[in-house]
């Protein structure tokens, strides 16, 4: 077990964005958090990444309890990929400087070779190295973001909706790439998505979140067999099959 969270609660004022969430992630597995906007799934990921410091409960990484802030050693083992490839790369920095930055932060050697190798691994040639983000497509940018996360050779990747801003054909390529990299580097994934099918494809185990709570945890085979018990999970499943006039009738309005 590489990661475990107990009683994880995040409150923004009155609202409990995450309410007593508990889950564990095994080393080398890929774990999914599914939910709609406002479910608290991204908040959980941001707490793990140390981007939100105001939380209660306990989180243990590799057997050690995590505090409010994370040290550099933590970030050399855990890296994050963000949802929006248009926003997560600095607009004034070339791909080269984006990749050199984590190397400098973690005081790693052989920058040249590592940058070249990282670009190659995510399927971008060295021709992309000195371009600016605005010269790249969404899919290419997300590949750069993945390269940037992997360049410090972490054990775990936190993926925040890594393909939701991409076209479906590009999504397939990026998901395949992530899967291949996970196997090649024996990585652990924690992936957040609103898309059940994407999570079922990528993750062996998943938890469904609704209004800050984890309502159900199951493995993907059970999900595929339709063994979800929680009404919210069932509703998500039904909705993800596509538009259906009669089905829409059965959803209560959410105002």
């Amino acid at each position: 077990m590489i990661l475990s969270a107990k009683n994880l609660t995040v409150a923004f004022g009155e609202m409990r964005a995450v309410d007593e969430a508990a889950f564990t992630v095994e080393r080398g597995e890929s774990f999914g958090l599914v939910g709609e906007s406002g479910s608290g799934k991204s908040t959980v990921l941001r707490v793990l990444a140390g981007l939100i410091e105001d939380w209660s409960g306990s989180i243990a990484f590799d057997g050690k309890a995590l505090g409010r802030t994370r040290d550099r050693a933590f970030y050399s083992r855990v890296q994050m990929v963000f949802q929006d490839p248009y926003g997560s790369l600095h607009p004034r920095q070339t791909i080269d400087s984006a990749l050199a930055e984590p190397l400098a932060i973690h005081k790693m050697d052989r920058h040249e070779q590592r940058i070249e190798k990282a670009l190659e691994e995510v399927g971008l040639g060295s021709g992309f190295r000195f371009r600016y983000p605005h010269q790249l497509s969404g899919g290419q940018r997300q590949r750069v973001a993945i390269a940037r996360a992997l360049i410090v050779e972490p054990e775990m990747l936190l993926l925040d909706e890594p393909t939701s801003a991409l076209d479906v054909s590009i999504q397939a390529e990026v998901l395949n790439l992530l899967d291949a990299l996970r196997k090649a580097h024996n990585l652990t994934f924690v992936m957040v998505s609103h898309n059940l099918a994407v999570v079922a494809h990528m993750c062996r185990r998943l938890a469904v979140m609704n209004r800050g709570r984890i309502v159900e945890e199951m493995d993907r085979d059970a999900l595929r067999r339709g063994e979800a018990k929680d009404p919210y999970t069932r509703r998500l499943m039904a909705a993800s099959r596509g538009y259906d006039r009669k089905l829409a009738e059965s959803f209560k309005t959410l105002d």
């Binding site: 479906v168 054909s169 999504q171 397939a172 998901l175 899967d179 099918a197 994407v198 079922a200 595929r224």
Partner: peptide, 20 residues
């Protein structure tokens, strides 16, 4: 056909997604 094919689907388990 390629577009339809590269979408991951709940009812279909695949080791690798088809790419366009």
């Amino acid at each position: 056909r390629g577009l339809l094919d590269c979408v991951p689907r709940l009812e279909r388990a695949q080791a690798k997604l088809n790419v366009l």
